[in-house]
Computed example of a mutant assay.
Amino acid sequence: MKIKFYLFILLAVSLFSCSEKEESNSCMIDIQVIAPEGYDTLPYERINVILTNQNQGITYAMPCSSEGLAAFRVEYGYYTASAHYQTTSGLIFSGRSETLSLLSEQYEGTAKVQLSRSRSNALIIKEIYYGGCIGRKGEEYQSDQYLILHNNSEETLYLDSLCVAIVDPASSLQSPWIKYTDMKRIPINDVTWQFPGTGTEYPLHPGEEISIATNAVDHTGGEYQHTNSVDLSKADWAFWDVSLSQQDITAGVRPMKMLLNLNTNIWMYPLPAIGPTMIVFKIEGKSAESYVNDISNRENRPQSSNTKKFYLMIPKEWVIDCVECVASPDRISYKRVPDELDSGAAYLPDGPYTGKSLIRKSSLNEDGRIIYQDTNNSSNDMITTVPTLKNRK
């Protein structure tokens, strides 16, 4: 009987010691969610705040109080705080606070997450395969990239004159544009591509989608033989090798129009294997050619030593959809676009050259049609998958 008693005491002391140790390695922090002007009556109790440990990828979730306050106890570390709410009418309220240094028992003050308002998109970037795979000789292979655009609405949309581009900086580096500008204009990295057409030549009906390949060939067969790759010879559209003529594209694949190239050294158009930020936009109010050729619409990268390199700038209101991709969880804070365009960022958990793709989460609507999730937060919307074009017949 005494042995059992002593074991009970030992267990209790051990649990208390562990609890005390865990307590000493954690801290308290309050997060205050702030609504945009004119939306003070948001139902804060339906808004969750997410804290993400930037080094470990661990997340903590907590609902807000009626005043928009969420209290956390988390392990020490560097964190990103984010919040999101979507109305039934499609309005999206989202925001984030970067790099909270929670390294002591009590965070000094209350961290704030300012929400911005946006709307779910009809035309979405459904999937991005940018990471490449391991080639037939064991090399890192990324010439097989593609993205898919999907009509997520119940109305017919038109691709005519829409543009597709990568936001600068192309790879997941800290953006000097975010740090030194108000981001009312979005910088385009090097090349801007555009769909042809004058208005209604290229319809995209509800639930339909199109694929755009960087190299529209069968990467698994013929002269390539990369068995881990994808057959893109049946892609709908292609970013074409700029050293070739448009007639050199695989028969049946439509060429995108290279609207502007501000890097004469580019001979092809690879997506950054460690994560591009892709946008779809439409130039409004004037012809696309006159806009991109107007030098007042170009800027030098802030704090850049290369004063001769300029980038096309577009108003952020022109952006139809955006998906931000980064290299790893610790790079999520390296934002390249404001929260109105994407309040999060997605990444490939196993890194590049693993033959994996990022695709939006999906569900069925009342009519049985697939609807893809668009909460304006790629951290929540995108998941990893085998490229959907890999097994397409």
Rank of each mutant, 00 (worst) to 15 (best):
D339H: 11
S305A: 13
P270C: 06
Y180M: 15
A35F: 00
W240F: 13
H219F: 05
Q225C: 09
I128Q: 07
K126H: 12
N261Q: 08
G351H: 12
G132C: 08
G138Y: 05
E340W: 07
P206N: 08
L123G: 00
H219W: 08
G77C: 10
N306H: 07
N297A: 11
K390V: 04
S243L: 08
V253L: 07
S94W: 04
I371V: 15
V337R: 00
P270Y: 02
V33I: 05
V167K: 05
R136K: 07
S19V: 02
Y158Q: 06
G351Q: 11
P63R: 08
G132T: 03
S66G: 09
P255Y: 04
Q114E: 09
S14F: 15
S378L: 09
L232T: 04
F281Q: 03
I148L: 04
N293V: 10
I9M: 11
G344Q: 01
K393D: 12
Q373A: 07
L91Q: 13
L312T: 01
I210G: 05
Y146E: 12
A61T: 15
K184A: 12
T88V: 11
S343F: 00
M1Q: 10
A71M: 07
L159A: 06
D168Q: 13
G199I: 11
I3A: 15
Y146T: 11
S104V: 12
S17K: 06
K234W: 01
G109N: 07
E98Q: 12
L11M: 13
P352S: 05
T87R: 14
I210C: 05
F16T: 15
